[in-house]
C-alpha cells in the first residue's frame, strides 16, 4: 500500500527540539517563520552529531513552511552547516593572514600528523575532524582554532596537545 500523507517526523525531530526551534520562531514576525531556519538547522545539526541529513532539512522545511529547496540553499550556503558526518570534536583552524603570519601552518601540520587526517576528514574513531576556516575574528590571539563552541587562541603544538587531551 502506498501512502502519500505527510512524512512521519523522525525520532530526531523531538518535542524538545521543536520547543527550541519555537524559541527562535518567536523572535520574528509571525509571517516570517523562515527567519528561524538558521537557528533550526543549527539545533537539528547539533542533535544529529554535527551534520545535516536531507531528511532533517526536509523536516525543518515542513516545520517552517518552507519549500525544501529553500532550506537546502541555506544549508549549503553557510559554512557552519555540515552535510557530511564530522567528528565529535570538529576542529576548525583559521589559516587567514594574521594566523598564517603567526605560523598557523605549523598548527595544521601538527594536527594532521597527530590525528592522521587532513582537512575535511574524520578520524577513524569519529573523535575528531579537521576543517580549514576563514577568519574567525580572533586575530589578536593568532594562531587560533575553534572546537565546538570554544575558541582556543595563541596556539602552540604543546597547547594543542593539551587541548585535545581534554576532549572526549
Amino acid at each position: 500500500m502506498t501512502t502519500t500523507t505527510a512524512k512521519e517526523t523522525s525520532e530526531l525531530f523531538t518535542p524538545e527540539i521543536r520547543a527550541e526551534i519555537d524559541r527562535w520562531i518567536a523572535k520574528y514576525p509571525a509571517e516570517w517563520k523562515q527567519s528561524a531556519v538558521m537557528g533550526a538547522l543549527m539545533i537539528v545539526q547539533e542533535s544529529n552529531g554535527g551534520w545535516l541529513t536531507t531528511e532533517l532539512m526536509d523536516q525543518v522545511a515542513a516545520y517552517l513552511d518552507m519549500p525544501p529547496i529553500a532550506v537546502y540553499e541555506v544549508a549549503t550556503f553557510y559554512s557552519m552547516f555540515e552535510l557530511k558526518p564530522v567528528g565529535r570534536n570538529k576542529i576548525c583552524v583559521c589559516t587567514n593572514v594574521s594566523c598564517m603570519t603567526n605560523k598557523s601552518d605549523l598548527i595544521v601540520e601538527h594536527l594532521e600528523k597527530k590525528l592522521g587526517i587532513g582537512f575535511g576528514e574524520v578520524t577513524e574513531d569519529g573523535r575528531f575532524s579537521l576543517k580549514e576556516v576563514e577568519c574567525l575574528g580572533a586575530c589578536g590571539g593568532a594562531p587560533m582554532m575553534q572546537i565546538g563552541k570554544q575558541y582556543y587562541e595563541n596556539l602552540t603544538p604543546e597547547i594543542v596537545d593539551a587541548i585535545l587531551e581534554g576532549l572526549e
Binding site: 523572535k27 538558521m38 537557528g39 541555506v74 550556503f77 553557510y78 559554512s79 557552519m80 552547516f81 577568519c135
Partner: peptide, 10 residues
Amino acid sequence: LHTHLGAGAY
C-alpha cells in the same frame, strides 16, 4: 531586541 545568529558567511 533579539539576537540572530549567523552560520558562517563573510
